Simulated scan of single mutants.
Amino acid sequence: MILYLHGFRSSPSSAKAVMLGRALRERGHGGEWHCPQLPASPAQAIALCDALIDLHHDGGKNGPLTLMGSSLGGYYATCLAEKRQCRAVVLNPVVHAARDLATQVGEHTQYHSDAPFVFLPEHVDELARMAVGRPADPKRYFLLAATGDEVLDWREMAQWYAGSHGRIIQGSDHGISDFEQWMPEVLRFVLEPQYRS
């Protein structure tokens, strides 16, 4: 099972999610791919992910569980990977979610639609409660961090995920608009046997 978790105010229609889903289908892994729309509530988002994993992951008989997450989705993926002891790909992940998302309390719209997105003060508390420490086994992670990220500090990401697979991209941006260039490395981590625990 490959579970992708999008970022704050984003959706399964994000460029990275669409590219990854297409690439995995082309490689015969479409049945393993799951990319849900996450609710604004972090607690509800994690509960949804737990339910999907319990429903679709068969304990590894048909392959390992791999989580993927971008920005806030990277934070969620890390929380779940530490709980489930599985691998995770994190793309410009939020490291200190309660601190960084506290400034986003209020009403927004989603990036890929005009639907409202309301982020409440209690959602910041939920992020704080679900926090985990640095990865217990960094080798289970693949970090893609861009020095040109205009939202988050790539140095915090590099320090938090020290010892992981992946790379620091010189330049780029928070959305990793050049993701297609780096996607083959991500897919190798997800699909090739030497990375599988």
Score class of each variant (00 low, 15 high):
I46K: 09
R22L: 09
I53E: 12
H57N: 10
A40S: 15
A40E: 15
A51Q: 14
D50S: 12
R22T: 14
C86D: 10
G63Q: 04
Q44E: 15
D58G: 15
Y75I: 04
L67Q: 08
A47S: 15
Y75T: 07
H29L: 09
L65F: 01
I46Q: 10
L38E: 06
K61W: 11
G73F: 01
A40F: 08
L91A: 00
E82H: 00
S41K: 03
R25N: 10
E26T: 06
G31H: 02
E26L: 03
L52S: 07
M68L: 15
G31I: 00
H57V: 05
A51L: 08
G60E: 12
P42M: 04
G31E: 14
G30N: 06
V90K: 00
H29V: 02
E32I: 00
W33S: 10
G30H: 02
T66H: 02
A43N: 12
L38R: 01
R25A: 13
G69L: 05
K83Y: 07
Q37M: 12
C49A: 15
C49H: 11
R22S: 12
A45H: 03
I46R: 11
A47T: 14
L91G: 02
L91M: 06
L24G: 11
Q44F: 06
I53P: 11
L67T: 10
L38N: 09
P39I: 07
H56R: 15
W33I: 05
C35M: 10
T78C: 08
A43H: 15
G30W: 03
L65N: 05
C35R: 01
C79A: 14
H34P: 00
R22H: 13
D50Y: 05
D50G: 11
G28P: 06
C86P: 11
Y75K: 04
L80V: 08
L91T: 04
A88I: 02
W33Q: 05
G59V: 08
L55D: 14
R87P: 10
W33V: 07
T66Q: 06
G69Y: 00
Q44W: 09
H56C: 11
G30E: 10
Q85G: 09
A43I: 09
A81K: 00
P42D: 11
